[in-house]
């Protein structure tokens, strides 16, 4: 038990150091004058790397795979519910992107109630 914990502590220290380096890297990269799409990609890639380190080691998600009882084969309940959550998360993130990218068909401007009214010459 104790040896196992010692092994974990060694990993925690390495993960902590990596997270610190990646945080500095995110800030350093933001000073480079990338085009906006590339800057967003790089920043999100680093954030995703950091996030997966936290999930895998601090939240012990890598070890949760073993949480399936041997009597029943399949994905553990934690991983299973997280996969479903990730799918729905992707859907809500991409809904605005897909709406924005949708150029099929005729473009209709939605009437804006707050737009200044255009002076129309009185019809006589």
């Amino acid at each position: 038990m104790s040896e196992n914990v010692q092994h974990h502590i060694a990993i925690y220290k390495k993960v902590a150091a990596t997270l610190a380096v990646l945080t500095l890297l995110t800030v350093a990269v933001s000073y480079i004058d990338f085009a906006v799409p590339l800057a967003i990609t790089v920043a999100l890639l680093i954030a995703a790397t950091k996030g997966s380190l936290v999930l895998s080691f601090f939240m012990h998600l890598l070890e949760e795979k073993k949480s399936v009882p041997l009597s029943r084969k399949g994905i553990g309940l934690i991983i299973g519910s997280l996969i479903i959550t990730a799918l729905f998360f992707l859907v809500i993130i991409f809904v605005p992107v897909m709406g924005h990218a949708d150029k099929v068909g005729d473009y209709f401007a939605v009437p804006n109630a707050n737009a200044p009214t255009v002076e129309t010459p009185a019809a006589h």
Partner: peptide, 20 residues
């Protein structure tokens, strides 16, 4: 687990709001 999640959210909030 809850605390690491709060940390995780910040890891994404920081670049999204401060850097991009």
């Amino acid at each position: 687990l809850y605390w690491h999640f709060v940390d995780l959210v910040w890891i994404f909030l920081f670049p999204v709001l401060y850097l991009l």
